[in-house]
Design a protein around this nucleic acid. Structure first.
Length: 401
DNA sequence: CGTCCACAGGAATGACGGGCGG
DNA sequence: CCGCCCGTCATTCCTGTGGACG
């Protein structure tokens, strides 16, 4: 078994090679550190707002704004877990439920997971939304509870389903006799209030909390604190740390991004058997993360989305219009014997690919010659080839080109 | 200055697979 | 098993529109 000798090498290298990581977990974004640097003020404010709960009163609804990776979720979880601890100490009937609306998906599933956190079983599907809401309310009112609902990424819910859920939630206290509900809404989108019914918005934002993006210096401090836990002393260069901070600061001060860069850079360095994480490793990490992201996205596309992407690739121009793409797509469907979608549908698929950062679509007017979208590939051509070349249904298309 | 292209993108509607409760 | 409701994908029909051309 020659294979085992290869593996031996791999394992030996892993065990005996230089180790850089002391505790890799500390770099994951769901890791909740003991200290959250540069968010002391927000912690204090949020704490003050929820504190009345300990005296059996309902706390104000709170709206939290801030871009991704500014610590909204971390601060909220941090404060609430401390609150839960205190509540036990004082014997207050406080419960909270954290729901990520984007992950959870639909209104139905948000209520389902709220109900489940209260111990009521809800099927995956089959009930009307109203029914689920009633069950939620009933199980809530069966015991005296002060319930804090955290709706993370709440904008995801509102944009395509309206504010019905929020409206019901803000009014639920009127129909509860024993229990009370407070809502903490978290949003990445600062313009959210434009989408919301003003009544819902005003009731939801009794308090407001804004999270500014971190600057490079702050990110550096955050990374430094984490690196003390996650790396052995002397295995991380200052330059690498600074580069991670700078890259993430350039991308709207996203701490999550900074932590990812640092973790992946460490992994790359460790695999190479290096004793020190350097700037080079960070640069490699940046490419690596992007590469993975794109590959993952490409693999999970539906056949038609792949065909759209491939059509753009096949046109080979720097930018194509919707009509041109539809023509190519049409021929492609014909060749594959696949059913073809309408141009209307194609338009939304293009928009989806644009949102994923695989394509870039811009509406432009060509005056007399109409109004359309200019569409470019956002990813390298070699990457498209790499993925689709091995695709069962698309692979043969590359033989000719 | 109006026309008119080549679409954009909203709204309504339908088909379909999944999963209820009775 | 039936009738009902869900979410998702897709179609059909539609109104809206920036700006080069005449």
């Amino acid at each position: 078994m020659g294979d085992s000798s290869i593996l031996d090498g791999v394992f030996d290298k892993f065990v005996n090679g230089t180790k850089l990581f002391k505790d890799r977990e500390a770099l994951r974004h769901d890791y909740l550190p003991e200290k959250l640097p540069h968010r002391e003020e927000q912690i204090k404010l949020l704490g003050e707002t929820v504190a009345p709960v300990l005296k059996d009163a309902r706390c104000s609804n709170i709206f939290i704004y801030g871009k991704t990776g500014t610590g909204k979720t971390a601060v909220t979880k941090y404060v609430l877990s401390h609150l839960e601890f205190k509540a036990k100490e004082y014997g207050s009937p406080v419960k909270f439920c954290y729901v990520n609306c984007r992950m959870t998906g639909s209104e139905y599933r948000v209520f389902a997971s709220l109900s489940q956190s209260l111990g009521a079983a809800i099927p995956f599907t089959g009930l009307s939304v109203g029914e689920v809401f009633d069950r939620f309310r009933n199980s809530l009112d069966s015991t005296r509870t002060i319930f804090i609902v955290v709706l993370d990424e709440v904008d995801a819910l509102i944009k395509d389903r309206g504010d019905g859920l929020l409206y019901e939630l803000t009014r639920i206290n009127e129909t509860l006799s024993k229990s009370k509900v407070s809502i903490i809404g978290i949003s990445n989108d600062l313009r959210l209030k434009e989408y919301l019914d003003p009544r819902v918005f005003s009731s939801l934002s009794e308090e407001e909390l804004v999270f500014r993006p971190y600057d490079a210096g702050e990110l550096r401090n955050i990374l430094f604190e984490r690196s003390k836990i996650s790396f052995y002393e002397g295995s991380l260069s200052d330059a690498a740390l600074s580069l991670c901070s700078a890259l993430a600061a350039a991308e709207h001060g996203d701490a999550r991004r900074a932590l990812d860069l640092l973790r992946v850079a460490g992994e790359i360095a460790e695999r190479q058997g290096a004793k020190l994480v350097t700037e080079e490793h960070v640069k490699d990490a940046e490419k690596h993360i992007e590469h993975d992201r794109v590959m993952e996205a490409l693999k999970n596309l539906t056949l038609h989305s792949k065909l759209v992407l491939f059509s753009v690739y096949h046109l080979g121009k720097s930018s194509a219009t919707t009509g041109e793409i539809y023509d190519v797509y049409n021929k492609l469907c014909d060749e594959l014997g696949a059913g073809l979608l309408t141009q209307r549908r194609l338009g939304t698929l293009i928009n989806e690919l644009d949102a994923m950062g695989l394509l870039n679509a811009k509406v432009v007017s060509m005056g007399r010659y109409g109004r359309t979208k200019k569409i470019r590939l956002e990813i390298s051509r070699t990457l498209v080839k790499e993925v689709f070349g091995s695709d069962v249904r698309l692979g043969h298309l590359f033989d000719k080109t």
